[in-house]
Design a protein around this nucleic acid. Structure first.
Lengths: 176, 176
DNA sequence: ACCTGAACACCGTTCAAGT
DNA sequence: ACCTGAACACCGTTCAAGT
């Protein structure tokens, strides 16, 4: 990779991060290119699709979430570890909406973003299920879909957490 | 309202129904106008916003859902009535995606669409709560947000119903 | 190799001009 | 009154021409 190409690549990612944060994941790609000071063609050369650009931007966040999952698996009670992680996923999905779509899309991207998230979720989920805290028939994908669905309709994080808690505990009353 | 205006209005609604069904709620309004054989200005004159057009299209469906709710309130067991209705709402929200956004948006539209859905939901919900079948702290808006969130991420109706059942019964295991 | 930016086919929206 | 459709400012995407 030539030096100027590398520089453009990095600068595009940084600019895209800012633009997505400001205007959401539907922001104009032409504007990203404009603000990065390159032609639109350069953006498309590096990132043939909007998804590709989103993934580049979110990569570290996904790393962070996975690390958080490892930490919780090592130090927190099974049920609470899963709940806490889902709230963290919700926060990220809400903050930059694109992450949400990216996770729920199921399409596997250039690198193993989806796979890593799935594996982090599976670890926490299996642990909670072994402890008898979560229904056996629940899958990691179920959880992602619920969280990303909630992320898309919640007006703010606290409403999102409320809905998430509702889904986790159940809308229905259970005989106790 | 002049006769040609009335005719255009009706034809636009019918065309929009078809176009939204084909291409989803983000379909091009210019194309709706084109297929209806009128200028884009005419569309905007009748429906100043996309929401206004969506509401006109979905009006009957909303009527149907409300009637369904009344029927269930009269004939089904409280908890099951609510569940059945939520599945019906999910189906409609999934079928024409716009209904989903319309309901969750919370903005009150020209006519009482949102209010009527809310009242239908509240009736079924209150009944289920009185019967002790649903948590007391759950609100009608909570239910709409959950259903519409699920509608947006579910790939098909059966997956949606699965997620809905999960949220209603709860992801967590409850001591019994 | 890589970048540029004009160009294309679209979009939503407006508004002068017509009937 | 109501409709028309050209016009404007955008968008995503491509691709010949440059360095």
């Amino acid at each position: 990779m030539r030096a100027d190409a590398r520089r453009n690549y990095d600068h595009l990612v940084a600019t895209a991060r800012a633009v997505f944060a400001e205007e959401g994941p539907d922001a104009s790609l032409n504007e990203v290119a404009r603000r990065a000071g390159v032609g639109p063609g350069t953006l498309y050369r590096h990132f043939p699709t909007r998804q590709a650009l989103l993934v580049a931007v979110f990569r570290e966040r996904i790393d962070t979430l996975c690390a958080h999952a490892d930490d919780l698996a090592a130090h927190a009670a099974p049920g609470e570890a899963l709940r806490t992680w889902l709230r963290a996923v919700l926060l990220h999905a809400r903050t930059d909406g694109g992450l949400s779509a990216t996770m729920a899309s199921g399409v596997d991207l250039g690198f193993d973003c989806h796979a890593r998230m799935r594996s982090a979720a599976t670890t926490l989920l299996a642990r909670a299920q072994r402890a008898g805290a979560v229904r056996a028939e629940v899958s990691a994908d179920d959880l992602f879909k619920l969280v990303t669905g909630i992320a898309q309709v919640a007006d703010d994080q606290s409403e999102g957490e409320r809905l998430l808690a509702l889904a986790v505990e159940g809308v229905a009353v259970h005989p106790s």
